[in-house]
Design a protein around this nucleic acid. Structure first.
Lengths: 341, 341
DNA sequence: TTGTATGCGTTATCAC
DNA sequence: GTGATAACGCATACAA
C-alpha cells in the first residue's frame, strides 16, 4: 500500500484486465455501470493515483508548460508567472520555471531542456539580443509547440506574443511631462536592441517631435535597471551646461536612484524637477514622495498569455498561426511628476 | 527531421540496434570507440534529443521537484524559489511551482498533483493550519520522497526544514527597541497557529520578561500582512488610554501602514515612536524614512533547502532521516528605530 | 461490454 | 562488443 498501485494491481484484485480498469477510470462509455463502480471503489481503496509520466509518454502530452525569464524574483516577472499559473491551473497544467540571468547561453539551454522535457508550450521573455541565430527558437516552431513571448518579445512568424503598447506608454508619459511644464526631458534607456526599449525610445522621440522640442543627445542615457545607475546618470546630467528638468526612466529602480541623488543636490521634486518611472514596482507607490510610473499589468499579461496558449492548443488548425496581443499601459501619475493639480 | 528522432531512428540509419545506440549515448564502457563515435555523430546529425519523459518513466526519476508556496509574487517567496532553482539547476533538476493562495484544499491538491507528476522532491511553505489531518503529508513520507519545509514549517518526523531562528530574531528586535528607550512596545502578530508566528511571539514575550516589562494584552494585535491592517491597528493603539511608543510588526507591509498612519497623526519617527518590521521587503530600504526590519535571507534559504534535498537524494540511507537547518536572522537597524546613534 | 495486443522512448538484463 | 527482449504505467485499436 505504501508504494505505487497501478491499474494492473486493481485489475488483478478484481480479476479483470487492465484495459477495463483504464476505461472505467477514464469514464469511457463502453463499460458497464457495475464494473465501473467496482473499479472506482477499489481504486480508491487501494489509493490508486494515475502516473502522469506514463500518461504523458503515451499521449505525447505532458501537461507541463515552461516559463523562461531572466530572473524570477522581481515583482514584474513573478507576477506574470503568477498570472500564467492561475490561467493554466484550471486546465490541469503545471508550470516549470527557468531563469536565464540575462545570459543567452542559458536561454538556449533552457529552451532545449524544456523541449527535452516534452513541455506542451513555452512562455518566454527574451534575454538575449536578437541575433541572427534563432536556431533554437526555430526548433520550437518546427516541433509545433506553442511559443508565446511576453513583454520582451522578438518579432517572428508563427510566434504569439503578449505585450503592452510600449510606444504608446512612452509617448503618453513624455506628453504628460511636457504638459507639466518640462521641456528638457532626459531619458534613461534600456538596451535598445530589445524591441520594448526601442519602442519606448521611439515614443519619447515622437512626443518631443510633435511638441517641437529638439532631441538633445546629451539627455539620452543608457542604463541598467538598478538604483546605482540612476544615481550615476543624474550626476552626468547635472554636470551638463544645460541640465534637464525632468527624467523619464524606463526603470523604476533607476528612477528611484535619480530621485535620491536629485534630493541630495537640494533639488525639489516635483517643483523643480519631475521624474517618471516604468514598471510600477511596489515601492513606487509606498514612497513618501510617490513615484509616477507606467503599470504593465503583469498579472493580466500572464493570464492573457495563458489564454493565448490555450486557444492555440485547442484549435489544432490554429496552431501554426500567431496571435499578437497588445495590452494598454496605464499611466500612474503620482507625486513625483505632479506639478499641476 | 522536423519531429522527433528516437534512438530507433539512429539505430536504423546505422544498421545497429537501439540498445547499442543507447549505450553509446550513455558512455557505457561496453562499447567500441568506433561505433560510439559513429553513433554520436549521426545522433548529432539527426538532431537527436533524449526524451526525458521516457527516461523518467523507465528510471522512476523525473528530475523534477515541486515547490509549494502561498503565492509566488512576493519578494520573499520569489527569492526562495530563485535560490532553490539556482541550487538545483547544476544538478539537472527542473522546478515546478504551485500556489495555494493560503487555501489548505489547494495545498492538498498541489501535493497530490506533484506526487502524480512523480516529482523527486517537494519543497513547501505551509499554508494551512497545523490540523490533525496530515494524511496528505504522510503520503509523501510513505512514498519516501524528500519533503523539505521552508520558513513556515510544521514539526514532523522525517521531514527536513530550513528556517530562520524566528524566536531569536524576535527577541533581539524587542531587546533593540527597549535599548532605544521604548518600554511600551506594541506587537503585530501573524496567525500564531503557524510555528513561525508562535516563535516570534515567544521571543517578544521573553525579551519583555527579561527586562521586567509586563505584557500588555492591549498591545498585542493580530494582523494580516498588508498595509491597511497596519493602519487600522495604529488607530486602535492610539485610542488606548496608555498608547505604546513602539511597534514591532511581524509584517513589513503592516509596519509601513503603521508608519503612514502615525505620521498622519503628527507623530515623529523615530523621535516619538519606533517601528520595526519583518521580512526585509525591498521597499523598506528605499523609503525616505528607511524601515528597520529582519532579513530572512530568502536566497540563502532556498539554496540551503536545495542542498538539504540533494544530500537526502544522494545518501539513500539518509533518506528517512531529517535535517532541520536554522539560519541566523539579520537585524537591519535603519532609521525607523534609531534614536541613539 | 470486455479482453488481447501494441506502442510511447528508454535502459537494463540477459544472451551470444 | 553487440543484439534481442522485457519493463516502466498507461490508453487504445482491434477482436471477440
Amino acid at each position: 500500500m505504501s508504494g505505487k498501485t497501478t491499474i494492473y494491481d486493481i485489475a488483478k484484485a478484481l480479476n479483470i484486465t487492465a484495459a477495463t480498469v483504464s476505461r472505467a477510470l477514464n469514464n469511457n462509455p463502453k463499460i458497464s455501470q457495475s464494473t465501473r463502480k467496482l473499479v472506482l471503489e477499489t481504486a480508491n481503496k487501494m489509493n490508486y493515483k494515475q502516473n502522469k509520466l506514463a500518461l504523458a509518454l503515451r499521449s505525447g502530452k505532458s501537461n507541463n508548460v515552461g516559463v523562461i525569464v531572466p530572473r524570477i524574483n522581481t515583482n514584474f516577472f513573478a507576477s506574470v508567472i503568477r498570472g500564467i499559473e492561475e490561467g493554466l491551473h484550471p486546465e490541469g497544467y503545471q508550470v516549470i520555471i527557468c531563469q536565464t540571468h540575462e545570459d543567452e547561453n542559458r536561454e538556449v539551454e533552457n529552451v532545449n531542456t524544456l523541449l527535452n522535457a516534452q513541455v506542451d508550450g513555452i512562455f518566454m521573455s527574451i534575454s538575449n539580443l536578437p541575433k541572427e541565430d534563432n536556431h533554437y527558437i526555430e526548433r520550437v516552431i518546427q516541433k509545433n509547440i506553442p511559443l508565446i513571448f511576453f513583454d520582451r518579445k522578438k518579432e517572428m512568424k508563427n510566434v504569439s506574443s503578449v505585450t503592452i503598447d510600449d510606444y504608446l506608454a512612452s509617448y503618453q508619459t513624455t506628453q504628460h511631462l511636457i504638459e507639466q511644464g518640462c521641456k528638457k526631458i532626459a531619458y534613461f534607456s534600456g538596451d535598445r536592441s530589445l524591441e520594448i526599449y526601442e519602442d519606448r525610445y521611439r515614443g519619447y522621440e515622437k512626443a518631443l517631435l510633435d511638441n517641437n522640442i529638439p532631441i538633445n543627445p546629451d539627455y539620452i542615457i543608457s542604463i541598467k535597471s538598478n538604483v546605482t545607475e540612476g544615481r550615476d546618470a543624474v550626476e552626468k546630467l547635472l554636470a551638463l551646461e544645460n541640465p534637464p528638468n525632468a527624467i523619464f526612466s524606463t526603470s523604476d529602480f533607476a528612477a528611484l536612484g535619480a530621485i535620491q541623488r536629485l534630493k541630495e543636490h537640494g533639488i525639489k521634486i516635483p517643483e523643480d524637477f519631475c521624474v517618471f518611472g516604468f514598471g510600477n514596482e511596489p515601492f513606487t507607490k509606498f514612497m513618501e514622495l510617490s513615484i509616477s510610473t507606467v503599470d504593465q499589468s503583469p498579472l493580466e499579461m500572464g493570464k492573457m498569455a495563458a489564454q493565448v496558449f490555450l486557444e492555440k492548443i485547442n484549435n489544432s488548425d490554429n496552431k501554426k498561426s500567431e496571435n499578437k496581443v497588445v495590452l494598454m499601459p496605464k499611466l500612474l501619475i503620482r507625486q513625483s511628476s505632479t506639478r499641476i493639480a
